[in-house]
Simulated assay, not measured.
Amino acid sequence: MQFDNYNIRLLQNSDIDAYYKMVSKNRKRLEDFFTGTTSRTKTFEDTKAFLAEMLEKVNKREYFPYIIEDTKTHTIAGFLDLKNVDWKIPKTEMGLYIDEKYAGKGLSTKAFILFCEHCFKEHGFRKLFLRTHPKNHSARKIAEKAGFKIEGTIRCDYKTTSGQLVDLIYYGKLNDD
Rank of each mutant, 00 (worst) to 15 (best):
L107E: 07
I154Y: 08
A139C: 13
K135H: 07
F125A: 00
A143F: 03
E151Y: 04
T109F: 13
T132F: 08
N136A: 02
A146N: 03
K110P: 06
I142V: 09
E117K: 15
S138Y: 01
E117V: 05
R126G: 03
K121W: 07
G147L: 01
L130C: 01
K110W: 05
A146G: 05
L128G: 04
K145S: 09
L128P: 09
K127Q: 14
G124I: 12
K110Q: 01
A111G: 07
A143K: 15
H118I: 11
F129H: 10
E122V: 06
E144Q: 11
K141C: 02
I113L: 11
F129Y: 08
L107T: 15
G147F: 01
T132P: 05
T132R: 03
C116N: 13
C116T: 14
I113K: 08
L130A: 00
S138G: 05
F112L: 15
R126H: 12
R131K: 13
I154R: 15
F115L: 11
K135G: 06
F125Q: 04
H133Y: 04
C156H: 13
S108R: 07
H118F: 10
A146H: 11
K110E: 08
H123E: 11
H123P: 05
L114K: 14
K110R: 10
K135T: 12
C156I: 13
E151V: 10
S108H: 13
S108D: 07
H137S: 11
E151T: 06
F129K: 15
C116Y: 07
H118P: 00
E117R: 15
R140D: 00
A111L: 03
F129E: 10
R140L: 03
H118V: 12
A111I: 04
I154Q: 14
S108N: 10
P134K: 03
R126M: 09
E122S: 14
F112E: 03
I113Q: 04
T132N: 09
A139W: 00
F120C: 12
H137K: 10
T153K: 14
G152H: 09
G147D: 06
P134I: 11
T132K: 05
L128C: 07
T132Q: 03
K145M: 02
C156R: 15
I154W: 04
E122W: 10
L128N: 08
I142H: 09
H118A: 11
H123F: 10
A143G: 00
R140V: 15
F148M: 09
H133T: 02
A143N: 02
K121Y: 08
C156P: 08
L130H: 02
C156D: 08
S138P: 03
F129N: 04
K145Q: 14
F115P: 10
H133A: 08
T132Y: 00
A143S: 05
H133G: 06
